[in-house]
Each structure stands twice: as structure tokens, then as C-alpha cells.
């Protein structure tokens, strides 16, 4: 195991112990000890090995880009809620639903997960399905849209989130691929 992998495991364990202590509400010695035991049990029973996250997909975290991702995402949630509320409360329902294919550039399943979740919480879209890998390794998200008047707008939204997510937590390979696409 490389040093980077050990650091990652320890960070992951620290986050899990913090969540455990947070669940109990107070940071007593008993909570910390039980947290360490629980996390050890989890790491033994459910290891996150290279088959879950391949080495080339391990992302690097850029804090400012992450904050941007979270900010855009939170604002999108507010706009989304407003749109759904308007659609619900209109006297005559006018929906034209569609399922749109949104191709992603990155190969990482982690990025696909973040983008899928972001899409689900944004205006009028909900991720419904993820395809198998295409020949070049990338994935396609299938997104259910409440208003189908512009499928390309849905794809553009997806790409915007993917760009933000790759900037925030993408792996080196994905960042390089994005640079090629953008230029």
C-alpha cells in the first residue's frame, strides 16, 4: 500500500469516527472508543478496495472548487424548489415530461455519482438510470425532465455540473480529459 493510500484510509476512518461521535451528540471518551471499534469493524467487513474505486479514479480535492460546486448546487436546489412549487400550484397542470440522455466525459463512477445527485436536486431534472460504460470508458446518465421543451438545455446543465465536479474532486485523468474537451 502506498503512503497516499494509507493517508486516504486514515482520513476516511477519521471522517467515519467523526460521524459516529456526531450521532451520539457528545464527544466523550466512551463515544470515541466505540467509534474506533465500529470503524475498524466496518473497514474489515466492507473494505473499499481497488475494484470499487480504481486507482486512476482516485480524485484530488480542490477546496475552492469544492466550495463553488456546493454553492452552485445549493442555489440550484433553491431555484428547483421554486419551479416545482410553481408547477404544483398552477391551476392547470402543464407538464411535458421526457427522459433525456446526458453523456458524461469522465470515466469515474464517483464523479458520475456526484453529478447524478446534483442533477437530481436541480430544476426539473431527476436522474433515473446510468448506462454501462461506453467503449471509451465514459458513462451516460438518463435524466427525467419535467419540461421537455429543450433537451439540450438539460444536457448543458449536466455538463456544467460535471465541469464543476471534476474541478472539485476529479482525478488527474478526468481533469486532463476535460481540458481537451473544453479547448
Amino acid at each position: 500500500m502506498t503512503a497516499a493510500m494509507v493517508v486516504r484510509r486514515l482520513l476516511r476512518a477519521a471522517v467515519l469516527i467523526a460521524v459516529w461521535v456526531a450521532l451520539w451528540g457528545e464527544a466523550t471518551v466512551g463515544n470515541l472508543v466505540s467509534g474506533v471499534l465500529v470503524v475498524i469493524a466496518i473497514e474489515v467487513l466492507f473494505p473499499v478496495g481497488p475494484d470499487v474505486v480504481p486507482a486512476e479514479d482516485e480524485g484530488t480535492l480542490h477546496p475552492i472548487a469544492t466550495l463553488r460546486f456546493l454553492a452552485v448546487f445549493s442555489w440550484a436546489l433553491v431555484v428547483a424548489t421554486w419551479q416545482v412549487a410553481v408547477a404544483c400550484l398552477r391551476p392547470r397542470l402543464r407538464l411535458a415530461e421526457a427522459i433525456v440522455a446526458v453523456p458524461l466525459v469522465s470515466r469515474s463512477a464517483v464523479i458520475a455519482t456526484f453529478v447524478a445527485n446534483a442533477i437530481s436536486l436541480t430544476p426539473g431534472t431527476l436522474t433515473v438510470e446510468v448506462s454501462d460504460r461506453r467503449p471509451d470508458g465514459s458513462l451516460v446518465l438518463y435524466v427525467h425532465a419535467l419540461d421537455a421543451s429543450d433537451p439540450d438545455a438539460v444536457r448543458a446543465d449536466g455538463r456544467r455540473f460535471e465541469e464543476l465536479a471534476v474541478a472539485a474532486f476529479g482525478s488527474a485523468g478526468d481533469r486532463a480529459r476535460w481540458k481537451e474537451v473544453v479547448s
Partner: peptide
């Protein structure tokens, strides 16, 4: 009245 279904 679903308009478009690329998943199908």
C-alpha cells in the same frame, strides 16, 4: 403524454 424517451 411523455414527449421524448431516449432511454427506451
Amino acid at each position: 403524454d411523455t414527449v421524448l424517451d431516449e432511454l427506451a
